[in-house]
Amino acid sequence: MFTRASRKRAAFTSHVLPQVCAELATREKPNVLDIGGGVASTLDFLSAYGARVFFLDLAEADHADYRASLQAYAGTLFDVCFFWDYLHRLTPGQLSELSDALVPYIYSDTLGYSIFSVPGFNDAGPHTFRLCSAEQLALEPAAVKGYQPWSYREFNTCFDAFSIEQDVLSEDGYLELLFAVE
């Protein structure tokens, strides 16, 4: 049913992002957390929603102190969190620490988004993601170590600030996850 994708690809059409963007459009001046360094196209796209964008490059440190990294934004509540494939670069302990650290920063209706290549369907590994439109991402392979996609059970156990609301596996082996709090 699914075929292995080539190692590099430039664009990805999302089936989940349109829902996230539709939700963003209903919120006034939403706060958006992007786990990653500042990316021009992502910023440009999100600015059309009047979003305040928080780029938090947690991948910079091998053992990120999530609470300390988020402390600078104490009092901020994120409407949407873009995790990209960062969650799949963490150990179970780190995943749990990040989940706990995020709890003070999310609403009861905050959404989370993750996308990653699923070994066996797509062995492209980790990527850098750029948000181009409500349904289009640009992907570039990223050289990071420790990439380990998690099962739903591991997510539910270690990342319990959120639960998986929707999942879509694309034909070319990318799994998109939509997270909800409640």
């Binding site: 360094g37 500042g38 990316v39 021009a40 910023l43 600015s47 009047g50 305040r52 964008v53 928080f54 780029f55 938090l56 490059d57 934004y73």
Partner: peptide, 15 residues
């Protein structure tokens, strides 16, 4: 705010 390719940014952007 304009981020050029190759720029490094860490923080929040409020436009």
């Amino acid at each position: 705010v304009a981020l050029e390719d190759g720029a490094r940014f860490k923080g929040s952007i409020d436009m």
